[in-house]
Design a protein around this nucleic acid. Structure first.
Lengths: 129, 129
DNA sequence: TTTCGTGTATTAAGCACTTAATACAGTTTG
DNA sequence: CAAACTGTATTAAGTGCTTAATACACGAAA
């Protein structure tokens, strides 16, 4: 497990974001065990308390659960898991539309750029394929 | 002049962002005077030093210039003004594509949502028109 | 039982941003 | 000239958030 952190957002927020993305991609089974706070801290080279804070918030959001001193697990509620993906998409779309709106760019103009950039990226990602 | 601040980003960064958006919209003429540090601080209900910091960075970025003790002005370099709009667009697109990529959402799927949301927003914005 | 690994809680330290209080030089205006 | 406005600079204090350092309770396992 590896995460590239930026210096802009709090680390614990980025950790939560990372887990949400993993969930959105379907990398986790419902009820699956996740690394302990200390183990995650070692893997990501962060402080155990930072990992703790991330897990604590994920617990409050219902993304993970903890019983007694057992390792924490991904929620078994598949509706929650599904909604994570939808919420991330909505977030991205709203942020995007907000930015576009704030500079009065016609949607058609920017969508052209989006498609162009997307094709360029996926092209270089596949290499000489 | 009014700006709605969020509690997430530094105020001086949001002030710069606000000016860039105004420039991108073409609200400023090249060479146009802008409010003094103290006046802007009064208008936006912020500390004069915060306004100063924003203006200082905008000066370093070539967005505004100051001669002697004259009021600061928007740059006369129209190429710079034009590039502001383009950079904001590129920023928005890159951020958007990055978010989409991190959760493996097909472009076609998300573009549908974008169009749908955009139509809904512009619809309610125009009211009973 | 002892040891180790869980989760959890408390307290302190560090850091960036904001605000504040001044100060100074120059120009315009009354 | 004097007052009031520009921009600019320095220094310090305060504030909130993040991170760090510890400690504690519990349970499983050697």
């Amino acid at each position: 497990m590896t995460v590239k952190f930026n210096n802009r957002d709090p680390v614990y927020v980025q950790v939560i974001q990372h887990f949400k993305e993993q969930i959105a991609k379907g990398y986790f089974e419902p009820g699956q065990e996740i690394p302990s706070r200390r183990e995650l801290a070692n893997q990501l080279k962060i402080n155990p308390n930072t990992a703790q804070r991330a897990y604590k918030e994920m617990g409050e959001q219902g993304l993970i659960f903890t019983e007694g001193n057992m390792p924490s697990c991904i929620t078994k509620d598949e509706a929650v898991l599904k909604s994570v993906r939808e919420e991330l998409i909505i977030e991205a779309v709203d942020l995007f539309l907000g930015s576009i709106k704030s500079i009065d760019v016609p949607l058609s103009e920017v969508l052209e750029i989006v498609k162009k950039k997307h094709d360029a990226e996926s092209g270089e990602a596949e290499g000489s394929k």
